[in-house]
């Protein structure tokens, strides 16, 4: 008996977004990434042409040497932790990062209080060191981000970066400068689909094009709220497929940070849990793969072994 075709067709699809600008588009990137385009939920037995573009991995580079990373993770970057340019280069050349996400932890008032000039220098150094597209992610302190991120955006003008994050109560300054400098924007919400939609409406009401937005719904690691992140990702995708243009953006997840702060990923000296050196990367990879199935398009990651596992998964599913 023939297996009945049960795949559904939908009216809507995820917007395709291209990040990075090469010389012919006024930038200095040597490669770009294009994400989105899915016309169905992830692996619903759907035809290949509805799966959309391959998700990509943006590896984190911090603007200051991390002080609280577990040993297993820190060991990967011990030689470059003080040098964001070298760090980015290592991620791209050795670990195969599709993108670099500069996370400006160091500008946070409680974590170093670095200046806008410092952040601009890191941005320029990383742009010069690698040719992949760049995401520029603030320290998530509103006042400080509103001072620093406009300068960062201007420094990267023409490179078609991904800048974030803007939220319901703090979106005007960064949206305006991101629009002016021709970048893409990340709209953020605290695991709340209603607020996620609201931020998208607020930002587009300012004249920011919906097709240049990537959403960040907040991320929970395996065992620490991944169900919420999964459900919201899925809800966003289903709304997109039903034709809701205010939700039809690609989605980014912050898997690296969330995975490596849970005790199961980092605690050493617990032999019954297995080797810590394996547990961390497994935790990060499992979290990433789960969220890819919910519909994530960009995954922020940290450990090279986890990145390799997730890349292998992506290639098997999307190729």
């Amino acid at each position: 008996m023939a297996i009945p075709q049960v795949a559904q067709n939908f009216a809507g699809s995820v917007t395709e977004v291209t990040l990075g600008a090469t010389a012919e588009n006024g930038g200095t990137r040597t490669s770009t990434v294009t994400i989105g385009g899915a016309k169905n939920i992830v692996h619903a037995g759907t035809p290949a042409d509805s799966a959309g573009r391959k998700p990509v991995i943006a590896m984190d580079v911090l603007d200051v040497a991390p002080t609280d990373w577990p040993d297993e993770l820190m060991a990967q970057y011990a030689d470059v932790a003080d040098d964001p340019a070298a760090w980015a280069k290592k991620c791209v050349e050795q670990f195969g990062a599709d993108m670099i996400c500069i996370k400006f932890d160091g500008v946070h008032p409680d974590k170093g209080d670095k200046t806008a000039e410092d952040a601009v220098k890191v941005t320029k150094d990383v742009l010069a060191a690698v040719g992949v597209p760049i995401a520029l992610w603030g320290c998530e302190n509103n006042d400080k981000d509103n001072k620093v991120m406009p300068a960062v955006s201007q420094a990267a003008k023409g490179e078609n970066c991904l800048i974030g994050i803007v939220e319901e109560d703090n979106y005007k300054a960064l949206t305006a400068i991101t629009l002016a400098d021709g970048h893409h924007l990340i709209t953020g919400a605290p695991l709340d689909i209603n607020i996620a939609k609201q931020v998208n409406i607020l930002v587009t009401d300012m004249g920011f094009p919906a097709e240049k937005i990537v959403t960040f719904q907040s991320t929970g690691a395996l065992g620490y709220g991944i169900e919420y992140a999964y459900s919201i990702g899925e809800r966003q995708r289903l709304a997109t497929l039903a034709g809701d243009k205010t939700m039809a953006m690609p989605m980014i997840c912050d898997v690296g940070y969330e995975s490596w702060r849970v005790k199961e990923a980092k605690l050493e000296g617990v032999p019954e849990w297995g080797e810590a050196a394996d547990r961390g990367p497994m935790w990060e990879a499992t979290t990433a793969i789960c969220l890819l199935q919910a519909g994530a398009d960009i995954i922020r990651m940290r450990h090279p072994r986890a990145v390799a596992m997730v890349k292998s998964y992506i290639n098997q599913i999307w190729d």
Partner: peptide, 8 residues
């Protein structure tokens, strides 16, 4: 059929 938001 549509997700609620304050600006729905």
């Amino acid at each position: 059929k549509q997700i609620y938001s304050d600006s729905f």
